[in-house]
Simulated scan of single mutants.
Amino acid sequence: MKNKGIYYGLSAYVLWGLITLYWKLVVGVSPLATMCYRILWSFVFMMVFILLSGKRQQFIAELRLLWRNKAYAGLITLASVLISINWFTFIFAVSAGHVMQASLGYYINPLVNVLLATVFLKERLSRSGLIACLLASIGVIMLSIQTGSIPYASLIMAFSFSTYGLIKRRIPISSVTGLTVETGIILPFALVYMFGFSTVAFMDYPLQTNLLLAGAGVVTAIPLLLFAEAAKSISYITLGFIQYINPTIMLLLAVFLFHETYTVAQFSAFAFIWFGIAVFTYGTLGRAIKERRMSVSK
Results as ranks from 00 to 15, higher is better:
F120K: 02
F120N: 13
L121A: 09
S126A: 06
S126R: 01
I131A: 02
A132T: 05
A136L: 06
A136E: 06
S137E: 11
S137G: 10
I138H: 12
V140A: 08
V140I: 06
V140R: 01
I141N: 07
I141C: 03
M142R: 03
L143V: 10
I145H: 03
I145Y: 00
Q146H: 15
G148Q: 00
P151V: 09
A153S: 00
I156W: 10
F161H: 11
S162G: 08
T163G: 00
G165H: 00
I171A: 07
I173H: 07
I173F: 08
S174A: 03
S174H: 10
V176Q: 04
T177L: 10
E182N: 13
G184S: 09
I185K: 10
L187H: 13
L187N: 11
F189R: 03
F189P: 02
V192S: 12
F195A: 06
F202C: 07
D204A: 02
D204R: 08
T209W: 03
N210S: 01
N210W: 09
L213F: 00
A214F: 09
G215Q: 06
G215Y: 05
G215R: 11
V218M: 00
V218P: 00
I222N: 03
P223F: 04
P223L: 09
P223G: 05
P223D: 07
L225N: 01
F227G: 08
A228D: 14
E229A: 05
E229M: 09
